[in-house]
C-alpha cells in the first residue's frame, strides 16, 4: 500500500502554503497603501514634522516612550500627548526644555537633550501631527 503521509507532500504544503499566504499579505499590503492617504494625516506632514521625526529618532525617544503603543514601556505614551497637554505645542516644548540635567532623586526623569529651538519646534510639531493619525480610536482614553 502506498505511503499515506509523505515527506514530499508535507514539503509541497510548506512551499505552497507559504507562497499563498505571502501573496495574500502582499495583496493586503497593497490595499493598505491605497487606504493610507485617508488615515495617516499626510496632509499635515510638513518639513517641520519630518525634521521632528529625525529629532525623535536621533535622540532614541522610543527607548523609553511608546508612540502609538510601540516602543519601551518606561515612560508615557506620546501618540496623544498633544491632546493630553491641552492641544499645546508650547506645553510640549516647555516640558522638554525644563528637564533637569542631573535627574530627580529617586525618580524617573527624562534626560536634558539640549535641543535647539528648531529641533524643539520640530519635535512638538511631529507629536502634533502624530496625534492626528486615525488610530481606530486608540488609546482608550487621554492617559494613553
Amino acid at each position: 500500500m502506498s505511503e499515506t503521509f509523505t515527506k514530499s507532500m508535507a514539503r509541497n504544503i510548506f512551499y505552497g502554503g507559504s507562497v499563498f499566504f505571502f501573496l495574500l499579505l502582499l495583496a493586503l499590503t497593497f490595499d493598505t497603501e491605497s487606504a493610507l492617504p485617508e488615515l495617516d494625516n499626510r496632509e499635515n506632514l510638513t518639513e517641520e514634522v519630518a525634521l521632528g521625526k529625525r529629532v525623535w529618532e536621533k535622540n532614541n525617544c522610543v527607548g523609553c516612550h511608546t508612540l502609538l503603543g510601540e516602543g519601551a514601556y518606561f515612560a508615557p505614551e506620546l501618540g496623544n500627548v498633544y491632546q493630553r497637554f491641552g492641544n499645546s505645542t508650547d506645553a510640549i516644548k516647555g516640558f522638554i526644555m525644563s528637564r533637569p540635567k542631573d535627574g530627580i532623586p529617586g525618580r524617573r526623569s527624562m534626560p536634558q537633550f539640549n535641543l535647539s529651538d528648531e529641533e524643539l519646534e520640530g519635535i512638538a510639531q511631529f507629536l502634533k501631527y502624530t496625534s492626528g493619525i486615525n488610530t481606530q480610536n486608540w488609546p482608550p482614553n487621554i492617559q494613553g
Binding site: 502609538l68 503603543g69 510601540e70 488610530t135 481606530q136 486608540w138
Partner: peptide, 9 residues
C-alpha cells in the same frame, strides 16, 4: 490594529 492602518486588520 492601532498604528493608522485600515480597520480590517
Amino acid at each position: 490594529y492601532w498604528i493608522g492602518t485600515p480597520e480590517y486588520w
